[in-house]
Lab assay of single mutants.
Amino acid sequence: MKTQEELTEIVRDHFSDMGEAATLYVQVYESSLESLVGGVIFEDGRHYTFVYENEDLVYE
Rank of each mutant, 00 (worst) to 15 (best):
M1Y: 13
M1V: 12
M1H: 13
K2I: 09
K2R: 08
K2A: 06
K2H: 07
K2L: 10
K2W: 08
K2M: 08
K2F: 07
T3A: 03
T3I: 03
T3F: 05
T3Q: 03
T3L: 04
T3D: 04
T3E: 03
T3N: 06
Q4K: 10
Q4F: 14
Q4P: 05
Q4A: 08
Q4Y: 12
Q4H: 06
Q4G: 03
Q4V: 11
E5F: 08
E5M: 08
E5G: 06
E5H: 08
E6R: 04
E6L: 07
E6S: 04
E6Q: 11
L7C: 09
L7K: 02
L7P: 02
L7Q: 02
L7E: 02
L7A: 02
L7G: 01
L7V: 05
T8F: 11
T8K: 09
T8H: 05
T8S: 07
E9H: 09
E9L: 10
E9D: 10
E9T: 11
E9N: 12
E9Y: 05
E9S: 11
I10G: 01
I10D: 02
I10P: 01
I10A: 05
I10C: 11
I10N: 03
V11N: 02
V11D: 01
V11I: 10
V11C: 08
V11L: 07
V11A: 01
V11S: 02
R12M: 12
R12N: 04
R12K: 10
R12L: 13
R12T: 04
R12F: 08
D13P: 03
D13Q: 15
D13M: 14
D13K: 15
H14S: 06
H14V: 09
F15L: 04
F15G: 02
F15H: 01
F15W: 04
F15A: 02
F15S: 01
F15E: 01
S16N: 10
S16C: 14
S16M: 12
S16H: 09
S16G: 08
S16I: 09
S16Y: 09
D17N: 14
D17R: 14
D17G: 14
D17W: 14
D17K: 15
D17F: 14
M18H: 06
M18S: 04
M18F: 10
M18K: 07
M18W: 11
M18L: 11
M18A: 05
G19S: 05
G19N: 05
G19E: 03
G19H: 05
G19D: 04
G19Y: 06
E20V: 14
E20D: 10
E20P: 11
E20G: 12
E20W: 11
E20C: 14
E20L: 11
E20K: 12
A21G: 14
A21L: 15
A21P: 14
A21V: 15
A22P: 12
A22F: 15
A22T: 11
A22Y: 15
A22C: 14
A22N: 09
A22R: 07
A22G: 10
T23G: 05
T23H: 13
T23I: 14
T23C: 15
T23R: 05
T23F: 14
T23Q: 10
L24T: 02
L24I: 15
L24Y: 08
L24G: 03
L24R: 00
L24Q: 02
Y25P: 03
Y25K: 04
Y25S: 04
Y25Q: 05
V26T: 02
V26R: 00
V26I: 13
V26G: 01
V26P: 02
V26K: 00
V26C: 09
V26Y: 03
V26S: 01
Q27K: 11
Q27P: 03
Q27H: 12
Q27I: 15
Q27N: 13
Q27C: 15
Q27S: 14
V28L: 12
V28Q: 11
V28C: 14
V28K: 11
V28I: 11
V28N: 10
V28Y: 14
V28R: 07
V28M: 11
V28E: 10
Y29W: 11
Y29T: 03
Y29E: 04
Y29D: 04
Y29P: 03
Y29C: 11
Y29N: 03
Y29L: 05
E30K: 08
E30G: 06
E30F: 11
E30Y: 12
E30L: 12
E30M: 11
E30I: 14
S31K: 07
S31T: 06
S31I: 08
S31N: 06
S31Y: 11
S31V: 09
S32M: 10
S32C: 13
S32N: 09
S32Q: 11
S32I: 09
S32W: 09
L33K: 13
L33Q: 10
L33G: 10
L33E: 09
L33I: 11
L33F: 10
L33S: 14
L33T: 14
E34Q: 15
E34T: 09
E34M: 09
E34I: 09
E34N: 14
S35M: 15
S35Y: 15
S35N: 05
S35L: 15
S35P: 02
S35D: 03
S35C: 15
L36Y: 06
L36C: 08
V37D: 00
V37R: 13
V37L: 07
V37A: 08
V37S: 10
V37M: 09
V37P: 00
G38R: 00
G38L: 11
G38C: 10
G38E: 02
G38N: 02
G39R: 08
G39V: 14
G39L: 14
G39E: 13
G39N: 06
V40L: 05
V40T: 02
V40C: 08
V40S: 01
V40R: 00
V40D: 01
V40N: 00
I41N: 00
I41S: 03
I41W: 11
I41L: 07
I41Y: 09
I41V: 08
I41F: 10
I41H: 05
I41C: 12
I41G: 00
F42A: 00
F42T: 03
F42D: 00
F42L: 07
F42E: 00
F42R: 00
F42M: 07
F42K: 00
F42S: 00
E43L: 12
E43N: 09
E43K: 12
E43R: 10
E43C: 13
E43D: 09
E43M: 11
E43I: 10
D44T: 03
D44P: 02
D44A: 07
D44L: 06
D44C: 06
D44N: 03
G45C: 08
G45Y: 05
G45K: 01
G45L: 03
G45S: 02
R46V: 03
R46N: 02
R46M: 04
R46E: 03
R46H: 03
R46I: 04
H47T: 05
H47C: 12
H47F: 07
H47Q: 06
Y48H: 01
Y48T: 00
Y48L: 06
Y48E: 00
Y48V: 05
Y48I: 07
Y48S: 00
Y48W: 06
T49E: 05
T49D: 02
T49V: 11
T49I: 11
T49L: 12
T49K: 10
T49P: 01
T49A: 06
F50R: 00
F50W: 06
F50Q: 00
F50G: 00
F50M: 00
F50V: 02
F50Y: 04
V51K: 10
V51M: 06
V51Q: 04
V51T: 09
V51G: 01
Y52L: 08
Y52C: 11
Y52F: 08
Y52I: 06
Y52H: 02
Y52N: 00
Y52S: 00
Y52M: 04
Y52A: 01
Y52G: 00
E53C: 12
E53P: 01
E53I: 13
E53M: 13
N54G: 08
N54I: 05
N54V: 05
N54A: 07
N54C: 14
N54E: 04
N54F: 09
N54M: 07
N54D: 06
E55I: 06
E55D: 12
E55F: 11
E55L: 09
E55W: 09
E55C: 14
E55G: 15
E55S: 13
D56R: 15
D56F: 14
D56T: 15
D56Q: 15
D56E: 15
D56S: 15
L57F: 08
L57T: 01
L57V: 06
L57K: 01
L57N: 01
V58C: 14
V58E: 06
V58R: 14
V58D: 04
Y59E: 03
Y59L: 12
Y59F: 13
Y59W: 13
Y59M: 09
E60K: 11
E60L: 10
E60V: 13
E60N: 08
E60G: 07
